[in-house]
Nucleic acid binder design. Structure first.
Lengths: 67, 67
DNA sequence: TACAAATGTCAACTATATATGACATTTAAT
DNA sequence: ATTAAATGTCATATATAGTTGACATTTGTA
């Protein structure tokens, strides 16, 4: 489970508004939030930018890597 | 420019070996390293795991976000 | 209860990530 | 100077990300 929905709600955006902000369809946001598929890196980066966070926060949750 | 090539060389892997390790074709690694396209999140995550790093290190370089 | 906004989901379509095979060029070692 | 390994790149094919439109369900609010 990624954390897009959490960050979107924290930003008080609807799926539709987030979709517009990153330039994809509303359904695409819905599918990403529900892990129905595998977004492109480009979309991940735009999501992180619009949600004022970064790739690790959104998509690296629970991974055990430490530097 | 992402840093896949830097991390691959640090791990002393060839493009072919890295491709095998993450389960894609060698050409795919080549294209990713040279920013010829837009990999899937899934591939990005496998690259980060195999290269013992994380998404931000590989693909968030130069982005200005701080938590 | 009723209504509207937000969300989930389906089917059909289009764009593009990724595969495969092949070949040219570069790099490194002999 | 040769040779092999590694890399860059092309063309064609396939899988799947992302679109569009539509409708059902949920959630919040009057």
């Amino acid at each position: 489970m990624n954390r897009v929905k959490d960050y979107r709600k924290a930003a008080k955006l609807t799926q539709f508004e987030l979709a517009q902000a990153v330039g994809v369809a509303r359904q695409t946001i819905n599918l990403v939030e529900n892990d129905k598929y595998n977004p492109s890196l480009d979309l991940c980066i735009r999501l992180a930018q619009v949600l004022h966070t970064d790739l690790n926060q959104l998509f690296w949750e629970g991974q055990v890597h430490e530097k």
